[in-house]
Design a binder for these strands. Structure first.
Length: 437
DNA sequence: TCGCCTTACACATTTGAACTGT
DNA sequence: AACAGTTCAAATGTGTAAGGCG
C-alpha cells in the first residue's frame, strides 16, 4: 500500500504543512495546492487527499479534550457522556452494527494483537450509516488514537496504568476501499473496516496503523462528503467514536478470557475451539504422536473444499460470528470489486492504475522541493479533537448525529507532506507524527 | 528473574482462477 | 459466446509455544 514515508523519506516522521511557496515547482494541479485557502483551518492536513470536498469554511472552536476513561478495562463500564459535536453533516448518523460483540469484549477488556507484519482487528468496526444524500459522494475513513497518556500492564486480573505512554507514533488513516462512493452505496449495507491492520513496527512499509504495545486506543470513523475527489472543496464532515470499541494493544494476549472470546467469535480461530484440531487436547496428542513417529496420512484429507461462505465483501466482511447467522454476509450484495465511482482528474489516475501508486514512488509526483523538513509544529495532538461521543439513541437504534456544525480538517489531522496525492481507496494515509506527551 | 516481543507452526478461512454445465 | 455454479489450491488470518532480549 502506498504511504508517503516511502515517497518523502527525507521528511522523517514529523511533518509540518505550509502553504505552497510562490513559484514552487509543484507537479500537482493548482486545485490541489489551493487546499490552503481556508485561513481558519490551520495546517489542514486532510487537504492533501480530501481535496475533493465541497466548500463550507467555518471558524473552529477550540476542541475540548476527550472525556477520561476508566483506569482499568474490564472492571467498570465507561462513563456515559453527552454527544459532542464535530459534525457538519446534519442528519447523518452512524450505528455500530456489531455493538453487542464489542460490548462483550469491552466488558472483559478488549485486547488487539499487533504484529510486525500487521494484524487485523477483531472485532472489526462495522457500522451502518443513515441520513446521507444518496446522490452525493462520501469517503469513509478510520484512524486509531491513544485514549490517554498511560502505558498499561496486565496485573493478573485487570489492566492497570503503569507509567507514562511512549511518544506518539506517526498518525495514519485507513481509507475504506469503497471510497469515494455515493450515499446510496454506503447506506445500502453495513460498512466494514475489517481489512484494517495494526502493527507495532514504527518502520512499517505497508502503511498499517502503527500502535504501541500495552497502550489504550480508540478507533474513530470519519465520514467526509466529497462531491468530486479532486476539486478543492469539501462539503462537511462527521466523526464518530464508539466507547465500547476502546482496546489495549498487545503483542500477546494477556487476559485468558479475551483469548477465549476471540477463539469463540473469530472464524479464523475455529481450529482452537474445544473440538477443533488445534485445541490443547489435540495439540498434546499430536506432540505425543510426533515423538512416536510420523502423523497418519489421513489428516491430509482435512480440506478446504467444505469451507463455508463466499468471498468477503469490502463492506460486509469482518467479524461474522458463527453462532450469529444474522451477521453473515449477504451473497450477491457483495461489492468484491467496487467500481471506481470517481471521475476526477488525478484521483482518476489512481483509480485507473492503483498499482502504480502502491509502492511505486516513481509514478508519483516528485516531492515539492519548496517544503523543507520541519520539526514538530507543537500543535495539540489530534486525539484531543472533538468527536461525537455516541450513545444509544432514544429508540435504541443508531446514534444521534445532530450536533453543532464544526469544521473538520484541522481537528482531524495535522502535518504531512504537501502536496500529497490521494492515496486511493483501501489505502492508508500517513498524516505525520506528533509527540503527544 | 521477569515481562514483553518475535518467530515458527499447524490449521481454518478467504480468495480467485480454472473448470464445468446451461 | 456468455453466464452461473463448482472445485481447488494458494494466500491469508488465527492462537500457541518456545526462545530471545533487555
Amino acid at each position: 500500500m502506498y504511504h508517503p514515508r516511502e515517497l518523502y523519506p527525507s521528511l522523517g516522521t514529523g511533518y509540518r504543512l505550509g502553504p505552497p511557496q510562490p513559484g514552487a515547482d509543484s507537479s500537482f494541479p493548482p486545485a490541489l495546492a489551493e487546499g490552503y485557502r481556508y485561513p481558519d483551518l490551520d495546517t489542514p492536513k486532510l487537504d492533501c487527499f480530501l481535496s475533493g470536498i465541497e466548500a463550507a469554511p467555518r471558524t473552529l472552536a477550540a476542541p475540548p479534550p476527550l472525556p477520561p476513561l476508566p483506569p482499568a478495562l474490564g472492571s467498570e463500564p465507561p462513563p456515559p457522556s453527552a454527544p459532542e459535536g464535530l459534525h457538519s453533516l446534519p442528519g447523518v448518523s452512524l450505528s455500530l452494527e456489531n455493538r453487542e460483540l464489542w460490548k462483550e469484549f469491552n466488558s472483559v477488556g478488549t485486547e488487539m494483537i499487533i504484529t510486525k507484519a500487521g494484524r487485523r482487528m477483531f472485532p472489526a468496526c462495522r457500522v451502518s450509516v443513515t441520513g446521507l444524500d444518496p446522490e452525493a459522494r462520501y469517503l469513509f475513513l478510520l484512524d486509531v488514537v491513544p485514549v490517554d497518556g498511560a502505558r498499561y500492564r496486565w496485573q493478573g486480573r485487570r489492566w492497570e496504568p503503569s507509567g507514562k505512554a511512549e511518544p506518539r507514533l506517526p498518525d495514519r488513516v485507513y481509507i475504506h476501499p469503497d471510497s469515494p462512493a455515493t450515499g446510496a452505496h454506503w447506506m445500502r449495507q453495513p460498512v466494514s473496516f475489517h481489512r484494517v491492520k495494526l502493527t507495532n513496527s514504527t518502520l512499517d512499509p505497508h502503511g498499517h496503523l502503527i500502535l504501541h504495545s500495552m497502550h489504550k486506543y480508540q478507533p474513530r470513523i470519519h465520514l467526509v462528503r466529497a462531491a468530486q475527489l479532486c476539486s478543492q472543496h469539501w462539503g462537511g464532515v462527521a466523526s464518530f467514536r464508539f466507547p465500547e470499541t476502546t482496546f489495549i494493544s498487545v503483542t500477546a494476549y494477556q487476559n485468558p478470557r479475551i483469548t477465549q472470546l476471540k477463539i469463540a467469535a473469530n472464524p479464523f480461530a475455529k481450529g482452537f475451539r474445544e473440538n477443533g484440531r488445534n485445541c490443547k487436547r489435540e495439540r498434546d496428542a499430536r506432540v505425543k504422536r510426533k515423538l512416536r513417529g510420523p502423523e497418519p496420512a489421513a489428516t491430509a484429507a482435512y480440506g478446504s473444499g467444505d469451507a463455508p461462505g463466499g468471498p468477503c465483501d469490502s463492506t460486509l466482511g469482518g467479524d461474522v460470528r458463527e453462532s450469529d447467522p444474522e451477521q453473515a454476509p449477504v451473497p450477491g450484495e457483495a461489492a468484491r470489486a467496487p467500481a471506481p465511482p470517481c471521475s476526477g482528474p488525478s484521483a482518476e489516475a489512481y483509480l485507473l492504475h492503483p498499482a502504480a501508486f502502491h509502492g511505486a514512488p516513481s509514478h508519483l509526483p516528485a516531492r515539492n522541493p519548496s517544503f523543507l523538513e520541519a520539526p514538530d509544529s507543537g500543535r495539540p495532538a489530534p486525539y484531543s479533537a472533538t468527536f461525537l461521543e455516541l450513545q444509544p439513541g432514544p429508540a435504541g437504534s443508531g446514534y444521534p448525529a445532530a450536533a453543532p456544525p464544526a469544521s473538520f480538517a484541522s481537528h482531524f489531522l495535522q502535518g504531512g507532506p504537501f502536496p500529497l496525492p490521494y492515496p486511493g481507496p483501501g489505502a492508508y494515509l500517513d498524516v505525520g507524527s506528533k509527540p503527544m506527551y
